[in-house]
Design a protein around this nucleic acid. Structure first.
Lengths: 193, 193
DNA sequence: CGAATATGAATGAACAATCATTCATTTAAT
DNA sequence: ATTAAATGAATGATTGTTCATTCATATTCG
């Protein structure tokens, strides 16, 4: 056998891709710059991905999956919607602090009309949001008639938007506190109450 | 004098740019395709804009200005936050029906880390949102301590997100009713209550 | 054990296609 | 005839992708 695949290179390609897509958009993230930043040869990524589109799409799916899996695990342990949302938003804020590139990456691509989350993932999300609603109604935290879409907007979209508004420093500030984090939960829950 | 500038060509360039940026993203919207779709020569737009970036930026500013001006005029006639938001969201839904491209265009670029709304516009928006909060507190519709950022998220961002979620058909449906429109208002107001 | 070989990891020059932009030229209205 | 609107071929840079080549090392064999 020849030498083993250097997983570090693949990792660096992924990191560089995330950084450059956030910085320059999908179209502005050139393969040449990705390769340069990752410190690998230009053509290297084609051994693992058949195209730039596939690279970015798979990366998006995997990052979205992280959030979806977090929500899934929360639904197994939490007993109230408030708790689920508190934990989930906590996780999103944590991502914003620890790996800001990743949440920006999701943010940028989820608003691109070329990148849709996979059908499977969308179905999965739908099921999880239905559970959130179920728990909320059982606990009297949410009003009776809420659609999946409405809950999704408040549980997932609004917090992501809030965090990115902050990260862009749209109104000056770029940091956040635990109290602010709790207020995001409060607003989301209030909306659906 | 020679012949007059054909304003139709400029208009068609703007329309084509909006369509293609929505369809393919900023990087994917080639000048050659914009010109082809607009039915003008390739280099024509450089008589009015110094670059592609300037064309798209100016277009974004003007479209955002439409919404901002609408909010401004509402603040002169409406007497409650609920009324302001009802009318504003009504306007956004109307845009979604009548000129879906325009709201998609704003939606796509406002989430791009390369395109920030102009400083002037941001200041303007800030002032208007402060007015919305003032009215809301005076009327007892909103809780006392709300930041501009929080109100902006619910008054502007959330409705735009909701409409685009619909237009993408994320959960199947692509149309909307007046009742749904009212529910968006209800959610936003509830959040800040 | 140590050298030869085979394997496939990794490279980067080369490709055609496409990009944004320029400007000499043409066209048409005054 | 004059003037400026409008054209679109041409430019050089950059794009995503390919693939012949190089290189490191795991395995095999003496």
């Amino acid at each position: 056998m020849a030498r083993l695949i250097d997983e570090g290179k693949i990792r660096r390609i992924k990191e560089a891709t995330i950084q450059l897509v956030v910085q320059n958009g999908y179209g502005g993230a050139a393969i040449s710059s990705i390769a340069k930043r990752a410190g690998v040869a230009e053509g290297y990524l084609y051994r693992f991905y058949s195209s730039k589109q596939e690279l970015v799409t798979e990366l998006l799916y995997s990052k979205v999956a992280q959030i979806v899996e977090k929500l899934e695990s929360l639904l197994e342990t939490c007993t109230s919607t408030t708790e689920v949302m508190g934990q989930l938003i906590g996780e999103l804020f944590r991502m914003g602090i620890e790996t800001p590139g990743e949440i920006k990456f999701i943010y940028v691509l989820m608003h691109d009309y070329n990148f849709q989350v996979s059908d499977l993932q969308r179905q999965h999300i739908k099921g999880l949001i239905e559970k959130v609603i179920k728990i909320g109604i059982a606990n009297g935290e949410l009003k009776n008639k809420i659609t999946v879409e409405e809950a999704y907007g408040m549980v997932i979209i609004y917090p992501i938007e809030f965090i990115n508004l902050r990260m862009k420093g749209f109104f000056g500030t770029k940091e956040w506190t635990t109290e602010e984090q709790n207020r995001v939960v409060e607003f989301s829950i209030n909306a659906l109450k």
